[in-house]
Design a protein around this nucleic acid. Structure first.
Length: 833
RNA sequence: GCCCCAAUAGCCCAACCGGCAGAGGCAGACGACUUAAAAUCGUCACAGUCAGGGUUCGAAUCCCUGUUGGGGCACCA
């Protein structure tokens, strides 16, 4: 049950409404966290939270990221760093357009109305952003540089157009990148089942960077979540093996195949070509009419399948023979060539050698079409070793058989020997392939960055001159934004028809817009000089701030955004625009805010509304709850946490500061040593805890300090004590990371000038960090028998003697076998009867 | 099917290099204050660490097996 917390309009009571109303306007007027362009000598930290997409108001997920990101930003400020913590909006994208179609509003209006709403909520939430650097990716001032980026890639051959089978979302009526298709074959936006279409589209050559994108993950090993690293490695999907060239019998046409198992070449009993590959069409074209007919029917059937059906590994494999044979380069054997849709056109060369004895997919196919199975690795297991009978392909290691010069070798040696032989006879070589495909970046929708290319009547692609950027979107008036499979921009005749820059003849603009992931792949650089009209980013500012020291956001971007941003960063590095090649030095993925064990959703009706929570409990209590709920990467079940509890704690902390009667500068040295010990231990522990993202533990420790303070004021040293003031000030400083309004008010009540967020943590005094004495425990056979108060400096001999004396009576009649002494805390005496 | 992560009090969570299972909070019980209640202040109780085995003087912590939950990959040759 969450009930409403009521405040009192009384200066002597904690009232979050009064305190919020008091400080928000001051921060708004004085902008304490804006960072000027000037470079200064302090150490820098660039703390970045993933910027939001403006779909309606902020939600509880935003409340979590921006609370946690702000803890880190404020922490580094309190450590004396110069902190850049900017915010903006990822404001191009389909939802704006879909809303526009549904409600007849302009996508621009819809977007900027939402931004205004989110901006107001964000300000209310009091995250310490630099509000002078706000950017929106849908502003021409931003997407001009997005177009510049495109042209940079284009000039280096990294942006290109090709005709290919692409993922098509039949609901949103646009193409999707591979990364935007969920594992179940549906679109990550619309949820529609994705189909394949053959279209001419723009791509970024991310595959050129596959090896570096993979290798450089090692450098992020301890600063990025292991989970994200694994996901990226899987996505890039490196395979080592060999490329082997088979030759079509008769025509001599070469068929290159990629295999991870060149050692099993003697077990290849047929070949399979992807039905939708050019090679298949070519081979079928030369075949007899019956084969041609069968192939054509099969291809039609295959193309009707959805991605879901096609990716179902359990379905029965199908295929047709192409009626031609190919020669195995190692043994000269002639094997039949088939087409089957378990082979993919765009992986490897779109063709495979099939080794049914040692590959389950090939075996399934061989058994269905009665093709031969030849065992070439003797895997020496207890299992029946005949895949043709068992139906289970063997993949283990063992001596090779039926393999001529490979006989007797194990897997690794046979692979090496096979590659060596292939290379010496010119029939192949060692090779590496990647699962990663080029990034499809064109979209057939309106609300995105226009692609700055003009198509000449002769088919030439002419990059728009830099001086003519930005290519601005035309107004929506008169345009039909409804999805129809081609870009709405194509219908904006005045916009699309332009003179050919070469000779003034008729030409047209490219009517597609860019994937919005292009926009977000470099926005962290634009924050460094957001008003610069002469370039995408200022190299001086980049040198001062970049790369991002700490990135904070959801794990849903583990592949998409983070992979693209890494890629673009490497491209910009190679082009000499920046001097680093990984964009985000450290990454924190926060969990989700859920309710009653499940994800919040409109359809389930289990939504906690951001604004309502702030109304009921106050900004500080909500922010504190986000930090205190548990480790940041865990999900927060809003039903399991108590915002009321956070509110009560804040009131308690506030009251403590309110009760302090000493003046600024009161001597802490003469105050309560016990309290000082608590305060300085806390101070010493903040850094390691925050830097390990243990925000929940810091809050717990903060509560502990407040509890001690309360006790000290009520029944100890009293409200005028110097140590009490010291502790209250430390509480205000530390609390400013979580609850800025309360902290600012406490700081002010303690007689200080604003702003608490711009102060520095005092150093912990080492004198309070060491204990003079500790409680040592004495165990017999691991069970605690006695406790001794001993000096921290006690020697092994002294402690041992004290311990033996203390448990003397329990040792009567027993034999001491061993004594383990770990000064100053433990003695374990091992005895037997 | 393969891989990874987790499991500590009724609940959310702490626990350094293997060394007394508890920092903090929620919910609970009791007391003080109050005519009473709320708020506040205080006191108390509650688990032997998912199960089983191993290593060790000593295991929440290391190893193995399993259970449950979460996540990733999965016709990629």
């Amino acid at each position: 049950m969450r009930e409403c917390v009521r405040g009192f309009v009384d200066e002597n009571e904690y009232d979050f409404r009064r305190i919020e109303a008091k400080w928000a306007p001051v921060w708004e007027a004085e902008r304490p966290f804006d960072v000027p362009d000037t470079v200064d000598s302090r150490p820098h930290k660039y703390i970045l939270d993933m910027f939001p997409y403006p779909s309606g108001d902020l939600h509880m997920g935003h409340a979590e990221v921006y609370a946690l990101g702000d803890v880190l930003a404020r922490y580094w400020r309190l450590r004396g760093y110069r902190v850049l913590h900017p915010i903006g909006w990822d404001s191009f994208g389909l939802p704006a357009e879909n809303a526009a179609i549904k409600r007849g509003v302009n996508p621009r209006d819809w977007t900027y109305d939402n931004i205004a709403q989110q901006r107001a909520s964000m300000k209310r939430y009091a995250a310490s952003f630099d509000w002078s650097r706000v950017l929106h990716t849908s502003d021409p001032e931003y997407y001009k540089w997005n177009q510049w980026l495109f042209l940079e890639l284009y000039s280096k051959g990294l942006a290109y157009r090709k005709d290919s089978w692409v993922n098509w979302d039949p609901v949103d009526q646009t193409v999707l990148a591979n990364e935007q298709v969920l594992p179940d074959g549906t679109s990550d936006r619309s949820g529609a089942v994705v189909v394949k279409k053959k279209l001419t589209q723009w791509y970024f050559r991310i595959t050129d960077y596959a090896e570096r994108l993979l290798a450089d993950l090692d450098r992020l090993e301890n600063t990025w979540p292991a989970k994200v690293l694994t996901m990226q490695r899987n996505w890039i999907g490196k395979s080592r093996g060999a490329e082997v060239t088979f030759t079509v019998e008769g025509t001599g046409r070469a068929i290159p195949v990629f295999t991870t198992r060149p050692d099993t070449l003697f077990g290849a009993t047929f070949m399979v070509v992807a039905p939708d590959s050019d090679l298949a069409s070519e081979l079928a074209a030369g075949a007899d009419p019956i084969v041609r007919q069968q192939f054509a029917e099969y291809l039609t059937e295959v193309q009707k399948k959805t991605e879901i059906e096609r990716q179902d590994a359990t379905r029965t494999k199908t295929g047709v023979s192409l009626g031609v044979n190919a020669i195995n380069p190692l043994n000269g054997e002639s094997v039949p060539v088939w087409v089957a849709d378990y082979v993919l056109a765009d992986y490897g060369s779109g063709a495979i050698m099939a080794v049914p004895a040692h590959d389950q997919r090939d075996l399934d196919f061989a058994r269905k079409y009665d093709l031969p199975v030849r065992v070439v690795v003797d895997v020496a297991s207890d299992e029946p070793n005949d895949p043709a009978q068992s139906g289970v392909a063997t993949t283990g290691d063992g001596p090779h058989i039926n393999s001529d010069f490979l006989d007797g070798l194990n897997k690794a040696d046979a692979i090496a020997a096979a590659i060596e032989r292939l290379e010496s006879i010119g029939a192949g070589k060692g090779a590496i392939t990647y699962r990663l495909r080029d990034w499809l970046i064109s979209r057939q929708r309106y609300w995105g960055t226009p692609i700055p290319i003009i198509h000449g009547a002769d088919g030439a692609e002419i990059p728009v001159d830099l001086a003519d950027l930005p290519v601005e979107l035309p107004p929506t008036e008169g345009l039909d934004l409804r999805p129809k499979g081609s870009s709405p921009l194509g219908a904006a005749e005045e916009w699309v028809n332009v003179p050919d820059p070469r000779d003034g003849s008729a030409a047209t603009r490219d009517a597609d817009t860019m994937d919005t992931f292009v926009d977000s792949s470099w926005y962290f650089l634009r924050f460094l000089s957001p008003r610069d009209t002469t370039r995408a980013f200022d190299p001086e500012q980049v040198k001062a701030w970049a790369p991002v020291d700490q990135y904070v956001g959801g794990v849903e971007h583990a592949i998409l955004h983070l992979l693209y941003a890494r890629f673009i960063t490497k491209v910009l590095f190679d082009l000499g625009h920046i001097n680093f090649d990984e964009p985000f030095s450290a990454l924190l993925n926060q969990g989700m805010v859920i309710l009653d064990g499940s994800k919040m959703s409109k359809s389930k009706g289990n939504i906690v509304f951001f604004g309502e929570e702030l109304d009921k409990f106050g900004v500080d209590a909500v922010r504190l709850t986000m930090a205190f709920a548990g480790p940041p990467e865990d999900d927060i079940d809003w039903a399991d946490v108590s915002v009321t509890g956070s509110h009560k704690f804040l009131a308690r902390a506030w009251r403590v500061a309110h009760d302090v009667t000493s003046s600024v500068g009161a001597d802490a040295a003469t105050g309560s040593p016990a309290l000082r010990r608590v305060t300085h231990r806390f101070l010493a522990d903040i850094a390691p805890l925050i830097e390990a993202y243990k925000f929940n533990v810091v809050v717990a420790r903060l509560m502990d300090v407040v509890n001690h303070l309360r006790k000290e004021i009520d029944t100890g040293a009293g409200a005028a004590d110097g140590a009490v003031r010291e502790a209250a000030e430390v509480v205000a400083l530390a609390l400013s990371m979580f609850a800025p309004h309360v902290a600012e008010d406490m700081w002010s009540m303690l007689g200080h000038e604003r702003f608490v967020g711009l102060q520095k943590f005092p150093e912990a005094d080492p004198a309070f960090l060491v204990e003079d004495s500790v409680t040592a425990i004495v165990q017999i056979n691991g069970k605690v028998k006695e406790r001794l108060e001993v000096a921290t400096s006690i020697t092994e001999e002294e402690l041992s003697a004290l311990a033996l004396a203390a448990v003397e009576s329990s040792l009567a009649g027993k034999t001491i076998r061993q004594t383990i002494v770990r000064p100053p805390k433990l003695v374990n005496i091992v005895v037997s009867d």
